[in-house]
Structure formats: C-alpha cells, structure tokens
C-alpha cells in the first residue's frame, strides 16, 4: 500500500476553552477525492485549514506529501508548495490581472522566469475554461469565473493535493455549476482533493470517500454509496434528511 498524501493523526485544537477538533484522524490516498460534510461549527473548515498550516494545532501530527506540518515558517512554505487551497471568498488579488494573479506565486515562490510563468498561466486558464479572460481584472469577472481563476491560481503551483473550503457557498445558485464542473474535471484527471462542501450531489457523485464531521470529530466516514445509502449514526441520518429538504 502506498503512503497517503495527506495523513492526520489524533489532531486536537481548541480556541481557549472551546475545543473545536478532538482526536481527528484521516488519510487521503493519492488520486482520492474526499468530501467533508457537516453542520457549520462542526470543525470541518478548521480541519481543512490545519492541513496547510493556516491554523495551528495543539496535538497530533499532520503529514502532507512527506512534509510534517510544523510551525517554522520555512518548512510551512515548502509544504504549501505541494498544497493548493481555494477559499469560499475567492481571495483573488484585486489589483492584479488574472494572469498576474496566477503567475505571482510561480514567479516569486518558485523564482520562475516571467515567460515560463505566463505559459503556465495560459495552460491552467485553459484547464478552467477562461483563456479569454487572461488580461481581465477580478472585478470584471462573475463570481463563478473568479472562483475558477482561484482554482487555476492554485493549479499553477502544481500541487500534490488541493483543498477546497466551501468554494461554492458564496456563489449564486446558477453559478455553482460551472465551478463544480471544473472540480469534477480535476478529479477525473486524478488530482487528490479534500473538499469541504454543502453540495451533496458533488459529494455523492464525485467523491470517493465522504467524511461527516460532528462536534469536532470524524463522526462517520465511508465510500460515497454506503455513506449516503445506509448511514449508521442517527446524527448523520438527521443531517442527511435536513440537507435534502434544502
């Protein structure tokens, strides 16, 4: 068996006296898509942010592509080269064009020549279907387009794993489809992905494994079919019922 790309072992984290993660363990194999679902406050976004060190942890170990998540800035930077992250609020850089947004990190973090970085920008933009927007500013794009550019920006660093933090939650319903489609294509190309989402359809049809987080722990997990068709715990059953109503 190969080494998992992402491995969390016994993660605990608290803000003051409030424990947000308790003994969370999770393995993500290469090429695997893991969907993480759960109510707001269940700790799912926090767990995701721990994986690339945006949040510190109090206990346990996280390894990503052979790097251990630590606190030294330099090691964290090396790790983050392997981990792409896409946020709910897009977080494109408003003063930079689409191309500059994408090529910034390759040029600066990887010290790539401008021309080479532009080539990469063209390639990843094509991948998300936005080649014609290369010289636009983020403000000139729709929310869905902005989020696709954000995905392209992460791809440009050629990550080994990508983290998606409720990436469609800030979008109007009619714009979520185009983003989900791009993510689905990524999955088909074999990208390793951890996706925190409210999109049950995506979790069911694209994810290999689904994780239900509840009260700061991994409450239940399994392959998509088993997970949705025969949930074991009453909490998950109730959650699935309530999210279907929506």
């Amino acid at each position: 068996m190969s080494m998992p790309v992402v491995s969390l072992k016994g993660i605990t984290k608290s803000y003051g006296t409030i424990q947000v993660l308790r003994d969370v363990s999770l393995d993500v194999e290469a090429g695997e898509v893991v969907a993480v679902i759960g109510r707001s406050g269940s700790g799912k976004s926090t767990m995701l942010r721990c994986i690339n060190g945006l949040e510190s942890i109090q206990g346990g170990t996280i390894t990503v592509a052979g790097h251990v998540v630590t606190q030294t800035a330099k090691q964290l930077r090396e790790l983050r080269r392997e981990v792409g992250m896409v946020f709910q609020s897009f977080n494109l850089f408003p003063h930079l064009t689409v191309e500059q947004n994408i090529s910034l990190a390759p040029r600066i973090a990887k010290k790539m020549a401008a021309e080479q970085a532009r080539g990469i920008a063209c390639r990843v933009l094509e991948q998300v279907g936005l080649s014609e927007k290369i010289d636009a500013y983020p403000q000139q794009l729709s929310g869905g387009q902005q989020q696709r550019v954000a995905i392209a920006r992460s791809l440009a660093m050629e990550p080994k794993v990508m983290l998606f933090d409720e990436v469609t939650s800030a979008l109007d319903p009619e714009l979520t489809g185009e983003v989900l489609k791009v993510m689905e294509q990524l999955a088909e190309r074999g990208m390793t992905m951890v996706v925190v989402t409210h999109e049950m359809g995506f979790a069911r049809h694209v994810a290999d494994n689904v994780v239900f987080m509840h009260k700061g722990t991994v409450w239940e997990q399994g392959t998509a079919e088993v997970f949705f068709d025969s949930p074991r715990t009453p909490e998950l059953q109730q959650f699935l019922r309530s999210s279907k109503v929506k």
Partner: peptide, 24 residues
Amino acid sequence: TQFEAGLSLSLTRLQIFRHIIFMP
C-alpha cells in the same frame, strides 16, 4: 483572507506585504 491566500501560495510575510497588501 488576502494574507491567507498569499500564505497558501507559499509566499513569505514580506512577499505578501510587498506584492499583495501594499498596492491595494
């Protein structure tokens, strides 16, 4: 969140300040 986006792209704090924070 702009800062976090920079961190996630493997930039240093100084690089984030110079390239992401400064002009806006």
